[in-house]
């Protein structure tokens, strides 16, 4: 697959914009999923994933073609997600549930340090609960945990995406698992 991608990249760089479409269709689900799990909101996930593809297009000439393209793309997307999380932090409480988004967004847009009452958590559907627990993870651990367990990427690749030493990635995943364990002791 990387071969097709590299061919398309060369075409885009030569000015053939339409070659970018195949790149988008190959990676759109993965990128959208990461953004959704990081941000917990479909609307924002679409916004950020779209922004990531546009930035990748604009900065495509800076991509080192000896490297893996998906790593570069994930890096753009996770950086944008982290920025978005930081920017929106102060007013997360003002977020109203978006109609027609099956209620997931309501819980996940809450800050992790404001847990819901236990009865409410227990009433959640399994999938709703997964997103709720991910959204309660501190940001630092969230990106590593999402890349590890939702995208199922190897530690080495996560270290390249997040531009962190392998040891730091391991520590974040360990702490993320511990945080999750504490959050869900009663499961």
């Amino acid at each position: 697959m990387e071969d097709i991608v590299k061919k398309r990249i060369k075409q885009v760089l030569k000015g053939d914009q339409s070659a970018f479409e195949e790149i988008v269709s190959l990676y759109q689900n993965r990128l959208y999923q990461v953004c959704y799990r990081m941000l917990g909101n479909r609307h924002e996930a679409e916004d950020i994933a779209q922004e990531a593809f546009i930035r990748a297009y604009i900065n495509l000439h800076t991509f080192d073609q000896k490297r893996k393209f998906s790593t570069w793309l994930y890096r753009i997307a996770t950086n944008l997600c982290i920025d978005r999380i930081r920017k929106k932090k102060p007013d997360t409480f003002l977020d109203a549930p978006v109609p027609g988004t099956d209620g997931l967004d309501h819980y996940s847009s809450l800050a992790h340090d404001s847990p819901l009452p236990e009865e409410e958590v227990e009433k959640m559907e399994q999938q709703e609960r997964v997103q709720y627990e991910i959204s309660r993870l501190p940001d630092k651990y969230r990106s590593a945990i999402v890349l590890r367990y939702i995208e199922e990427l190897p530690l080495q690749e996560i270290s390249e995406i997040l531009e962190l030493p392998l040891g730091t990635v391991k520590t974040r995943i360990h702490r993320g698992r511990e945080a999750l364990r504490k959050q869900m002791k009663k499961l």
Partner: peptide, 14 residues
Amino acid sequence: SVAFLKSASHIEAP
């Protein structure tokens, strides 16, 4: 906790 995370359903772009 790990099994719980892995149970997250696959999400597709709109």
